[in-house]
C-alpha cells in the first residue's frame, strides 16, 4: 500500500512574504516607508565605506553642514552612538598640543553623539556658559581614517546667574583629515 506523501511545512522569509503582501494589497504607503528605510540604511553603508561621506556625517554632529536643509534631511537617520566624539571647553583659545594633552583648566568630555550639544543642550548651558565673556569649544569626531575638528566661540553677554543673558555662537574654523 502506497504511503501518503508527507509534506513539510514550508517557511517563507518574512521579507518575501511582506513584498508579496504589499504587491497584492497595492499598499503604496508601506512601499514608500520601506523605500525611506532603505535610503537611510544605504546612507549608513556609504558613510562606512567612503571617508568623504563619513566627514559629512561627522560634520553634521558639529552643526557645520553647508545648508540647514542638508543637515535636516539626515536628522531622522540612524545616527545614535555613531563615531568617536569629544569636545573641549575652555575660556581661552587652545592649541593642538593642548587638545592632545588638556591642561587642568580645560574640560574634555567624550560624548555619544551630536558633539555640538556641548553648548546647545540645556544640561550644559548653566554649567559651561555660566559666566559672561568668551567661551571656546573644540569638537572632534573620528571614524576610521577620517577626522573632523571644529572650533566655536560662544559670546555670553550681560545677565547673571538669575537675570536673563544672551549668547551668540560663531564658528572659528574647521580642519579635516
Amino acid at each position: 500500500m502506497a504511503q501518503p506523501e508527507r509534506t513539510r511545512p514550508s517557511w517563507t522569509p518574512p521579507a518575501v512574504e511582506f513584498l508579496g503582501a504589499i504587491r497584492r494589497r497595492r499598499d503604496r504607503p508601506a512601499a514608500v516607508l520601506c523605500a525611506l528605510i532603505l535610503a537611510y540604511a544605504l546612507s549608513s553603508v556609504v558613510c562606512a565605506l567612503d571617508p568623504n561621506t563619513a566627514r559629512f556625517f561627522m560634520g553634521r554632529f558639529h552643526l557645520r553642514t553647508q545648508s540647514f536643509a542638508a543637515w535636516a534631511l539626515f536628522q531622522p537617520g540612524p545616527w545614535m552612538y555613531n563615531f568617536d566624539n569629544r569636545y573641549w571647553a575652555s575660556r581661552r583659545p587652545l592649541s593642538r598640543a593642548e587638545l592632545d594633552d588638556p591642561p587642568p583648566d580645560v574640560l574634555m568630555r567624550q560624548v555619544n553623539h551630536q558633539s555640538a550639544r556641548a553648548f546647545t543642550f540645556a544640561d550644559n548651558r548653566p554649567r559651561l556658559l555660566r559666566d559672561a565673556g568668551l567661551h571656546y569649544f573644540y569638537l572632534e569626531s573620528r571614524y576610521r581614517s577620517a577626522t573632523v575638528l571644529t572650533a566655536y566661540v560662544v559670546d555670553v553677554e550681560g545677565g547673571s546667574a538669575t537675570a536673563p543673558r544672551s549668547a551668540t555662537v560663531r564658528r572659528l574654523g574647521a580642519s579635516d583629515d
Partner: peptide, 23 residues
C-alpha cells in the same frame, strides 16, 4: 505587513548604530 515594518524600523536604527561604531 505590520510586523515586518516594525522589524525593519528597529533594524534600521541599529544597523546605522552598528556601522557608526566600526571604528
Amino acid at each position: 505587513r505590520a510586523a515586518f515594518l516594525a522589524q525593519i524600523i528597529v533594524a534600521l536604527l541599529f544597523f546605522g548604530g552598528a556601522l557608526g561604531k566600526l571604528t
